[in-house]
Nucleic acid binder design. Structure first.
Lengths: 233, 233
DNA sequence: CGCGAGCTTGACGTTGTTCAACTAGAGTGG
DNA sequence: CCACTCTAGTTGAACAACGTCAAGCTCGCG
């Protein structure tokens, strides 16, 4: 019953159109994708893609919020990014071992559209412009991965928390007080810190009146100071 | 005078042939690359590519040893990988902002072949098989970047040193004892540790008779123990 | 021989984690 | 409606990991 509230019908032609590379496809090509798709609804916490499994489909994320994460050593996960409606997920397994190298799980009720990888590869072969844009989208993600490496290896706690707050503010929610759907534990997994450390830095930022925190509602009061913390580490 | 010892003449057709994707090119396509190349020799320490500069050429690394690194916060660098003869370097700037997102500098006397990016892009457009293989090569690098993130964020000192020693043993030198061309400082920049910590762990491994170290000569005595350190972190 | 860069070592300080206890809020069943 | 429980969040104290600093060392090289 609860599920049915979130069950949606998805038409690829409108669904994918949100994502830049797909605007380079012809109507026929979109039709092909449309005929090779599967739509699935997820409850919070459910796994959408499991690291190590075979890559049979690509994912066009239709609605909700999910996390892409690396399963690391003794139960420690590292969240690489969050995805929301309109995001298209292509992993590095494509053209290589055709396996998933990250896991994806739903944070809120979510709907994902699975596109057969063979259909995708065929279109990549046919349509240069699309291939180029697809390539571009992958590289943009790679650039942000490089920034993430710097953040995680060279910045200390305040810098990393600043990075994740700016990410949530700029990319994910886009509003200024914003209400996060993720837990403190998730914030820890995004910054490679312990959840206790996350809480301590949030409190420190609050004491310095850079942010206001009340449970899951966060407001960045001094955006300039926050960007400064992000830069100096 | 010293330079001239290392100056080499490079014929793309033989030079690039070492790298998998290029075996998919026709003779004519290789000719195009050959006519759009520039060969440059470097002394140890010299910068080959500077992070932030425009990406006008791609690099086919002909001989020597060089490091690809990220310039981080207050002078801290992070070495992402080493390259040796036969390696082809494609950065994430391609199809995006056409800038270099990493720096490359020579460790030993090195020779690099610069290939005009327009020639490369044209061939990417013409030759699907090559484009696919090129894409594959990029994704393989991306997978190892993910492993690197896990290593740097979730392993502690012995695990990270084990990773870098195994990298040098398995990928770069391929022999056991091997003589490293890089400094302790470089080992530190590869593991995001201080050079003192690197030295301490090397000594600890030596005391435990897992390795033997004499200056730049390193022998892995107990490979199984080393791989174990790498896995458990 | 002397110089300088890289290497090594120990003492010390900082950063961030772990552990344990406690709190608050959201169901759940009687 | 009230215990009861369960989970997420919070706090403080003890601890471990790692970096910093300062000094001394080694070795190649002029």
């Amino acid at each position: 019953m609860l599920m049915s509230q979130h069950r949606v019908d998805c038409d690829c032609i409108h669904c994918l159109a949100k994502n830049p590379p797909f605007s380079y496809l012809t109507h026929d090509e979109l039709e092909i994708l449309d005929q090779n798709k599967t739509i699935v609804n997820y409850n919070p916490g459910e796994i959408i893609v499991k690291q190590g499994s075979s890559m049979t489909h690509l994912i066009s994320f239709y609605s909700g919020l999910a996390k892409i994460y690396l399963e690391g050593i003794n139960g420690h996960n590292l969240i690489l990014q969050l995805i929301k409606g309109g995001d298209f997920v292509i992993g590095p397994g494509i053209y290589t071992d055709f396996k998933h190298h990250t896991s994806i799980s739903a944070i809120t009720h979510s709907t994902a559209c699975f596109i057969d990888i063979h259909a995708y590869l065929e279109i990549m072969n046919q349509n240069h412009a699309f291939a180029k844009q697809s390539h571009k989208a992958e590289n943009i993600k790679k650039i942000s991965a490089l920034e993430k490496i710097v953040s995680l290896t060279q910045k200390q706690m305040p810098g990393r928390i600043a990075d994740v707050l700016l990410y949530l503010h700029d990319i994910i929610y886009g509003t200024n007080p914003f209400k996060i759907d993720i837990s403190r534990r998730d914030l820890a997994d995004m910054t490679a810190l312990s959840k206790e450390s996350v809480i301590r830095i949030l409190k420190q930022f609050k004491d310095e009146e850079i942010i206001d925190v009340k449970g899951s509602k966060i407001e960045i009061l001094d955006l300039a100071a926050m960007r400064h913390f992000s830069e100096v580490g």
